[in-house]
Design a protein around this nucleic acid. Structure first.
Lengths: 247, 247
DNA sequence: GCAGATCACTTGTCCGAACAAGTCGATGAC
DNA sequence: GTCATCGACTTGTTCGGACAAGTGATCTGC
């Protein structure tokens, strides 16, 4: 089912996690791997490129590849969906809609969703919990063509992404995230049951379909100490970028 | 000098930034690009793979590639070095060492730097400023073999990374970052000239040499509202991972 | 008019080959 | 003993080809 290079990448990931290739040690050469898995060198290179992008191994021309670490990021689905991530981590996720209404798009909405100002959008405010405690306040703005499907969702929806997939086959494919820290406002504090001014980790996100059509953008605020984000980078591949000011 | 596929990637980035390929529009086919740049299809694929990893374009089997956005992450150097990033953004960076001393490694140091507990490490506390205002508090722990070079640095060093490269040719190659939000403690507040309890964006980082040898780890705390981080992801490639609790 | 089948086109996967460029240990000169 | 040179080895780059798999517009039959 999966491509051969993905199978090999998985095998290598597992071997690293099991300590077969210890952290700080070296990976076999491309030639040896291509012999072991009976594939061409190009296929092996595709597999190790994936691990390099994940930050699991380091690579330099002329020298053998080095194992930098294990246990890293999971699937896109787990990042996109709070519920799916929680499940994979062995926690239980909850969700509750506080309010939800349609309004005309302002300039910010229009720019982010690539629509015209004034076009109708759906704004939703949700509180998400982890093992019973509220940890995340989610302010979403959906494009109009998504609004009907979102309004059909129950108020206590566990996984929005899963529900939308089951309902209309919607796939969330791409996302951009901007991360910073803010102090909890009055509303934030009340809904998350914390003190006003407490630090919150804010993720502003934009999501599109596989065809690049914007679906929604959102402002997620995590209670400090409950959730953190990890990213690996290297010369030649760094997904994370620093930005100044608000943006 | 640069590899052909990197030249092509740069040309495509520029074309996107200039609006030649508008956001939401489509990229030429691989066949057309390979003809235009007189390279094989494989080389074109390497170039567009880079843009895909950056989140600039979306890609699905069977359909043309879609332009998702422009202006994204810069080089690894800009992420690793506060000064180089500031310079590229048109700001001026400052740096000042508050204190600096050697001490035996505790268990946390030993684990992160892959050394034995008790081995000597160098701890440094720096305040970094942007255009005159203090925005970042940096707590670094360097491995012993780096300590001499770091101690030779002037107290008012603008770019630590640059200075270490000039001095001993040290290259920072790989990094792992864990991001969360914390409240400013008493020391944080005093040195950054903010109120105690103000939200700070915390980045805990581990850096290694090209050969995978740990150089240092650090705890960076950014004043809220001054700096944010951006990351793009997609199905099949997501560098960012969510983590629960402290870790 | 509409739903399904068809088909040209595009991207994904994989192969095998060749050469360039860099690393690292061994060898040898000083 | 130290340092420069050398050479085997490894990864990086690029080519050209072939086929598989998915998309989207067109065409066809009802």
């Amino acid at each position: 089912m999966a491509a051969r290079h993905e199978e090999i990448a998985d095998a290598l990931r597992q071997a690293i996690d099991l300590g077969e290739y210890p952290v700080g040690g070296m990976l076999p050469t491309e030639t040896e791997l291509s012999a072991r898995y009976a594939v061409s060198r190009g296929t092996v290179r595709q597999a190790v490129a994936a691990l390099t992008a994940e930050g699991r191994i380091g690579s330099r021309q002329g020298a053998r590849r080095v194992v930098l670490g294990s246990r890293r990021s999971q699937s896109f689905a787990e990042l996109r969906s709070f519920a799916q991530w929680a499940k994979a981590m062995g926690h239980t996720a909850t969700g509750r809609v506080i309010h939800q209404f349609r309004r005309p798009a302002n300039v910010e909405d229009a720019q982010r969703l690539q629509i015209s100002p004034g076009e109708e959008v759906l704004q939703v405010l949700r509180v998400r919990g982890l093992d019973g405690d509220p940890v995340l306040l989610e302010r979403n703005v959906y494009a109009q063509w998504m609004a009907d499907a979102v309004e059909r969702l129950p108020a206590e929806c566990e996984s929005v992404v899963q529900a939308l997939y089951d309902d209309i086959g919607m796939i969330f494919a791409y996302g951009e995230h901007v991360i910073d820290a803010v102090a909890a406002g009055a509303e934030d504090a009340r809904l998350l049951d914390i003190r006003r001014g407490s630090p919150l980790l804010r993720i502003r996100r934009m999501t599109t379909t596989p065809a690049g059509r914007p679906i929604e953008w959102s402002d997620d605020r995590y209670v400090s100490g409950t959730v953190s984000f990890a990213v690996a980078n290297s010369i030649g591949s760094n997904p994370l970028a620093r930005q100044s000011g608000q943006n």
